[in-house]
């Protein structure tokens, strides 16, 4: 789009342009669009960057870690403590999944903060990406719950100590409350990433369009960029924490 180059004149770049999907390798299988897009590219990049970094830094596996190895170990311990705190010993098995999930979302969010001009893109600012992740977690956790507790997992919807005449109201409420999980999980990540990036782009547009007075929005952008990096980290963290909390509910049912 032409508006992206409008910084020198009074014209402002479209703040929503950064969320547009661009097909790099158009491809269709049976009427389904499976093109390789900028979204796919950044997800692949995230996996490649993560794998390369972790394998490269752990290559020496020194007993006393060097600087880079420390980063990997720090990440590992950070997620491991989080999983252990929220799921207990039963959840250890699922640590690899939560670790991958956390690193994937974190690296995607951080890659989205790179100023790559026209090519910059954040897959987590697309609701379908976050919803697919959340739906996978939701279905997986529900299956684990039924697998561990059998049909007794349905007791989750009828908490103990509720008088029988309240059950017709309580059960629908509990079911709806359970169904909100994938929605709130995906919307939170998506909304946070999209809002932050839009705000930065709008401020950037002002800075370009206002000429000398643009120094104001430019200065404002500095703290907001910092804040956005914090949000990018925090949202990846929240996503992983919530996944382990849901997992905990499925593994140790008695909490409810």
């Amino acid at each position: 789009m032409a508006t992206a180059q409008g910084n020198d004149g009074a014209m402002m770049p479209n703040p929503m342009h950064q969320f547009e999907i661009q097909r790099y390798i158009p491809w269709e299988i049976g009427g389904v669009d499976v093109s390789f897009t900028n979204s796919s590219l950044f997800m692949v990049l995230a996996v490649v960057v993560t794998s390369t970094f972790l394998i490269f830094t752990m290559r020496g596996h020194q007993l006393v870690p060097g600087r880079l190895q420390s980063i990997s170990e720090l990440l590992y311990e950070f997620v491991r403590n989080m999983v252990r705190d929220s799921t207990g010993p039963k959840g250890e098995k699922y640590f690899p999944f939560i670790f991958s999930l956390f690193i994937f979302v974190l690296v995607i969010n951080m890659l989205g903060m790179l100023p790559l001009g026209h090519y910059s893109f954040t897959p987590t600012s697309q609701i379908i990406v976050t919803f697919a992740l959340a739906a996978l977690i939701f279905v997986g956790v529900t299956l684990i719950g039924f697998w561990k507790h059998g049909i007794g997992y349905l007791k989750l919807f009828a908490p103990s100590g509720v008088p029988w005449y309240m059950l017709p109201i309580i059960i629908p409420i509990e079911i709806i409350s359970y169904l909100t999980r994938p929605i709130s999980l995906s919307v939170r990540l998506f909304a946070n990433m999209m809002v932050g990036h839009t705000l930065l782009k709008v401020l950037g547009g002002f800075a370009g369009a206002l000429g000398v007075a643009g120094i104001g929005p430019l200065l404002l952008m500095v703290p907001f960029t910092g804040l956005e990096i914090l949000v990018a980290f925090l949202q990846a963290f929240v996503f992983a924490v919530l996944t382990s909390i849901y997992l905990n509910d499925a593994l140790n049912m008695h909490d409810h």
Partner: peptide, 21 residues
């Protein structure tokens, strides 16, 4: 640190409940 994460849930949890219902 965990509390920040949990506090961020409150808003979306409320809205998601209404939306899903």
């Amino acid at each position: 640190r965990q509390s920040i994460g949990r506090a961020l849930r409150l808003g979306t949890d409320l809205v998601a409940g209404v939306a899903v219902g």
